[in-house]
Nucleic acid binder design. Structure first.
Lengths: 201, 201
DNA sequence: ACTCAATCAGAACAAGTGTACTCTCGACTA
DNA sequence: TAGTCGAGAGTACACTTGTTCTGATTGAGT
């Protein structure tokens, strides 16, 4: 990332804070006052440089449309780790894991997992599963993990399989039985899109 | 939260998406087009209702200053699901899982997991592990999962154990051996605070 | 049948706002 | 020493944009 001058850095830092707090960009005259200036020209100049250097962008001619190009919310992904004695560090290109924006859409919701019936799918007690609402049951693919409500009763997390007009709900644990229902008996409330676990002491 | 009409809900959902994607509010005429309308009046009406019901707010007279009052980045936690045929739905109090803010501190970073040496700890290939830097190796508790760099070589994810002045790195998979090193040989780069997995088709 | 709220079209206005322009000044460099 | 670049003041203009009108339509209650 190309370095910034002191004045540019000052404006950039203020911008990031303002946008994070207010969910929208300030106007040039607002920035002017915040920087203690009496003319919009210096702000324009700094903004031009910030854009040229790849820090921000905006829609030409439109009011308050500045966007910070760097991810504000995510955390940096430094590389790949682990296991087979291999490791790799991303030095030049630091991607970012945007837990807030990237894989999650509006409407998604989370459920806390009780029990261990999905242990074979690496989902354990206490995990948070992020679900996406399913509007058309026909669109669910075989083997997807879904939250299924059975006959207006309890909801469980299971593998989804079709068998004619029947629906199979398979746990990922030998200790639990496979359940079969008529398609009309089960209500698929969502499909699994992500798992979050922070239950480490 | 007061319920919304269909038209209001449609606008609100679109708004949330737009602001999250663009870091600023759209103009009324943009909303007009997005909703397929030919007049700004209906949008204003919907916005008035959304504000009155506490969903959004804006600075009067200022362009593109709409803010979503609800937390955009967290996602709602509807309840507990699964497993032992038990389920529970949180109806009254909807907590929110703030993936961006809550359990993650500044300085945390993510690593993509290669291999299956931690499969016993329910961490599989492709998972993102969120690590927190460890400054004092003495503070690490027995059995914590850490990212350890061995003799300035590769970094691996393992259980951390002490044995006198030696350090044991135990994988969570029988197929891999336990490794032992002098404390001076291993550099603990971080301890595991969370796991994220979104590799579902 | 009546009321009321919510939803639309269309037009108009005033303020907010981005942008362009002309200057000056200081720091650094060839 | 002349030249370039970034910072800053001040002014002006055109477009974007929020807001306010006047009406018409629809649907749900009563």
């Amino acid at each position: 990332m190309e370095p910034l001058t002191e004045a540019q850095q000052e404006l950039y830092d203020w911008l990031v804070d303002y946008i994070r707090d207010n969910q929208h960009s300030p106007s040039i005259r607002q920035m002017m006052k915040a920087m203690g200036l009496k003319s919009p020209a210096p702000i324009q100049s700094r903004l031009d440089h910030l854009r040229k250097k790849g820090y921000i962008d905006w829609s030409e001619g439109k009011a308050r449309t500045i966007r910070i190009l760097q991810d504000i919310h995510g955390i940096p992904v430094y590389g790949a780790i682990a296991a087979g004695y291999v490791s790799e560090v991303y030095t030049d290109e630091v991607t970012r894991l945007d837990l807030a924006g990237l894989p999650i859409k509006s409407g998604d919701y989370a459920l806390k997992v009780n029990g261990d019936s999905m242990i074979g799918a690496m989902i354990q007690d206490g995990d948070m599963v992020i679900m996406r609402p399913v509007h058309d049951p026909q669109s669910i693919r075989e083997g997807t993990i879904v939250a299924a409500r059975i006959e207006r009763g309890e909801t469980t997390l299971k593998y989804f399989h079709r068998q004619g007009n029947q629906v199979q709900l398979k746990p990922a644990n030998q200790d639990y039985p496979v359940q079969e229902f008529l398609a009309s008996q089960v209500d698929i409330q969502g499909r699994l899109v992500a798992v979050w676990r922070d239950s480490f002491d």
